[in-house]
Design a protein around this nucleic acid. Structure first.
Length: 371
DNA sequence: AAGGCGGGGAC
DNA sequence: GTCCCAGCCTT
């Protein structure tokens, strides 16, 4: 592909697309789970799962999700806890809540068919401009541009668009280039090609020798592929501490789980009772169990995008059934593997670590009086 | 316009 | 350890 002639003029968008498509036919990914078949429903589900999430992570989740919810009607009829259960571990759980909500909107307002209109799509929760473009092009075969992280990287470098892509002016410039270059013919293949190019060739450290558009790439020519796109400005991430109560029945190993509030961190997921400090924990325990001595377990570190959380687990083993901590719609006793909904990843790891039915006598510490 | 929102893989 | 990813929503 490297003839020695310097490109004498800015190549046309058609030529850019032609080279990208030619590369895609030979080197691109053609057998991803959501490509066979690429129905609008399957494309929609995959696109939501793929928001801020890598392909290899999504594969297993996608297959399990499709097995259980093969179409819009099944998803719309499902309980949100089951949806969150299949989402458990994927993160960004608002995506699952939005997905479920949107399925119900599609069932009631669109006759159960995923819309093929940009305005109708972006009106659905969880679907923005880029995801709408992916559903329209990959799922419906329509002419529409996309602009995800991969495409941003390819276009920013090739067109020499400086600045951090999250900033509005940069975003505008990128969308303009994306729309200008997206061909009306073979739009789906082109969009998939751009994502594949970003995921396989135009990496953080790019493999320019393998790129079909390297000869006229602005960043490549300037030797500035490391600077474009501009990296996210650094910021200090705060650290938070929290106490999590593992209150466990020695009889069967069940632990007390609570449903978290619908919004915020881990919204709608099931988790351990949480306390700001030991004083708050002890006050909670005192009113329900009397004097008990919780056993500290090894802390669990968990990194979020915007802060770091250190969870200090405190375990209390119960020799008998208690009636102090009653079950309700949003609390209950469950074996870790039988949780009624999704569990946050670090809580799941912690719960799994506790193992099955413990024997009180084998464990250090606690045998609180009950009632 | 800025910040909230998970988790894991690559380095 | 740090960085960043098939973004969107709320404020």
């Amino acid at each position: 592909m490297n003839d020695d002639a310097e490109p004498s003029a800015v190549p046309s968008s058609a030529d850019f697309a032609r080279r990208v498509l030619e590369w895609y036919d030979r080197q691109g990914r053609h057998d991803l789970p959501w490509q066979c078949p690429a129905t609008p429903y399957r494309v929609w589900i995959s696109e939501i799962m793929l928001q801020q999430t890598r392909v290899e992570t999504v594969r297993g989740y996608f297959d399990r999700f499709m097995q259980r919810f093969p179409d819009v009607a099944t998803l719309a009829a499902a309980d949100i806890d089951e949806v969150l259960g299949l989402w458990s571990g994927l993160g960004y759980y608002a995506r699952a809540r939005n997905l479920h909500h949107a399925a119900r909107c599609i069932a009631t307002d669109h006759g159960g068919e995923v819309p093929d209109d940009p305005h109708a799509l972006t009106a659905l929760p969880g679907i923005g401009r880029s995801t709408a473009g992916a559903i329209l092009s990959l799922g419906h075969g329509r002419h529409h541009a996309i602009l995800d992280g991969n495409v941003k990287r390819v276009l920013a470098r090739h067109a020499g668009i400086e600045g951090w892509p999250v900033r509005a002016p940069v975003q505008r410039a990128l969308w303009a280039v994306a729309e200008e270059r997206t061909p009306a013919e073979r739009t789906a293949a082109y969009n998939q090609a751009m994502m594949d190019l970003g995921a396989m060739v135009c990496l953080r450290r790019p493999i320019c020798d393998a790129c079909p558009v390297s000869t006229d790439c602005s960043a490549r020519r300037a030797g500035r592929t490391a600077d474009i796109p501009a990296p996210k400005p650094k910021r200090e991430i705060p650290r938070r501490e929290t106490i999590a109560l593992v209150i466990q029945r020695s009889e069967d190993g069940a632990i007390l789980l609570e449903r978290r509030p619908p919004s915020g961190i881990w919204g709608g997921l099931w988790s351990l009772p949480e306390f700001a400090d030991d004083a708050e924990l002890n006050a909670w325990l005192a009113t329900r169990l009397g004097e008990v001595e919780p056993e500290p377990l090894a802390p669990v570190e968990h990194a979020f995008t915007h802060f770091r959380l250190c969870i200090h687990p405190r375990r209390v083993l119960l020799a008998g059934i208690i009636d102090g901590a009653r079950e309700g719609a949003d609390t209950g006793w469950y074996l870790p593997e039988d949780a009624p909904g999704g569990l946050p990843a670090p809580i799941r790891r912690l719960a799994d670590r506790l193992g099955g039915s413990p024997h009180t006598a084998d464990l250090p510490g606690i045998n609180p009086q009950v009632g």
